[in-house]
Design a protein around this nucleic acid. Structure first.
Lengths: 210, 210
DNA sequence: TTTTTCATGTAACTTTTGTCACATTCAATT
DNA sequence: AATTGAATGTGACAAAAGTTACATGAAAAA
């Protein structure tokens, strides 16, 4: 039974019915790779529970965080890849435990004409993902690392709903496409300013942080 | 009469017919603003001739180049904005003289179901634009300014089909979101390496450049 | 407990990028 | 021809980010 929050207000009843019939409910554990570079994508995922991290790698193997996907969202790049039968240009990793509905690619087209709510959902997704990428570009192009780091921590806070961020400096460095030493340095600076507290694999955001 | 190269192989005859009837042929001169921040978009442009430059601005007014659109291409962000009745998040400027067909927003949806070639075109556009944005992110995140500058000049060369680039250092600096002095410095370096020649408002790419 | 592995701290240094100030040069206008 | 304004050149310096090397500490494994 599909029971994502907001699903019934997003999709019309007949479509929900079809999604139950054709969609495959899948489960991923923290760290599982859901999509990977060069792999064909035959299903479009709609997230029911949990958070997915979407990454892009350069030639030398450095990876940068593009955006997160959470409840009720889906990856537009997966959609156009499915329809076009293209290989994935991104990697998607389960940030925590993830439940998703995988929609087979042959249904994507069909529903587009059949269900207005589906078409709206897809268009909204495209738009949201474009905006995420624009945000990402803005962040890298216009903001210095200290600001990007703060934005990164706030995003984590928003996604988890907690002021205690469980992540190593090394992972942050990867996500922001910089080096661990630089992140440690900036974090220490934030700690000295009384905005955060640092522990092993853990960063606590204080009142002053926001 | 619509006569873009490749149009008849992209769209089915019946759709071409409808495009002629409903689409409005528009002309823009170099420098004209085709889309702008915060403006509603009611038509989706398909470029027949010329090149459009798509930009994104930050809060402080700094602008960065996202990508170029040329013959037979269209702006996916315009599409999803049209369908969703959203304001534009980007600025689009005619790089040279541009002819385009403006498709009214009410047709976009209709054709999606009616013409498979339209649906394919739209999906391909979405995918291409995503890839452009990914390329842009990669460029900013993983490459130093000298490499980005070289890529920028090569792209100009590709688009114009000429090794003589007509652009000021100031414009390049804007497009790459840096300062004019920095660009002048890097260009002078390339000139000293025998890869380019510098003139006023003009950069000549030499054999060694490629 | 001891060892090993991973995470973090930090100093010292380099490279890259950004900024300011001012000179020079080219081309259009008066 | 003289004036003006935009484009470019360049030195000097500051700030930001990247790199190397090594120390310390904390947790997991032997």
């Amino acid at each position: 039974m599909i029971t994502a929050p907001g699903f019934s207000s997003t999709f019309e009843p007949a479509l929900l019915q079809e999604m139950q019939e054709c969609g495959e409910l899948k489960h991923f554990k923290e760290g599982d790779v859901i999509m990977d570079y060069g792999k064909y994508i035959r299903m479009m995922p709609i997230i029911v529970k949990g958070t997915i991290k979407v990454l892009r790698m350069d030639e030398k193997g450095k990876e940068i965080l593009l955006y997160y996907l959470s409840s009720n969202e889906s990856c537009s790049m997966a959609y156009s890849c499915c329809v076009e039968a293209k290989k994935s240009e991104v990697r998607a990793i389960a940030e925590d435990d993830v439940d998703l509905i995988a929609i087979p690619h042959n249904k994507l087209d069909e529903w587009l004409c059949k269900y207005p709510s589906w078409k709206n959902y897809i268009m909204r997704s495209f738009n949201e993902r474009f905006l995420e990428l624009l945000k990402s570009i803005e962040s890298i192009a216009f903001h210095k690392l200290d600001e990007r780091l703060i934005a990164y921590l706030k995003e984590k806070q928003r996604l988890t709903g907690s002021s205690v961020i469980k992540v190593s400096h090394y992972v942050i460095a990867d996500d922001l496409a910089t080096s661990r030493v630089v992140i440690s340095r900036l974090l220490k600076q934030l700690e000295n300013e009384g905005k955060i507290l640092l522990y092993r694999n853990e960063i606590k955001l204080l009142k002053d942080f926001n």
